[in-house]
Amino acid sequence: MLVELKVNGFPYRREVAPDTTLLTYLREVLELTGTKWGCLTGDCGACTVLVDGEPVVSCLQLACQVSGHEVTTVEGLDTAGELNDLQAHFVSNGASQCGFCTPGMLMSAEALLRNNPDPSEAEVREALSGNLCRCTGYNKIVDAVLETAKARAMAVSAVPDLSGSSSSVGS
């Protein structure tokens, strides 16, 4: 079965078995091993990627069902060797220890911030509850996400407002 995906902006066309999961397509067919697996039952979230900007567990997603869609993996967050702000805050907060949950955690956090630019701590915890982390106890991950939100809001409010309406995003 031909599965066409745009992954991190690049188009891929690969013939795969119909029952190939998105996880297998990414890790084994495209060799994008940044996406991890921890359970294959959708319980740990290590395999989280974005499909059209929304987070899914790629272990339970048939690749053929998302053919023609856009997929973003952890490899698609940084550009030209420069970490994106969320990745940078994960680094500076010590939000990654063994790092195995980190790719999935980043994708869930990125999805949250796109839909809810100013989340409360409770909302961050709720949004990340599908991503198990055994190393950090979550404190530093939550802090990294909250700091990113704050930084993005400041960046937005720093842009001159051309629409004429006041845009007071921020803390």
Partner: peptide, 8 residues
């Protein structure tokens, strides 16, 4: 950490 947050 930079390796880990980029999936590398």
């Amino acid at each position: 950490a930079p390796q880990k947050v980029t999936g590398r």
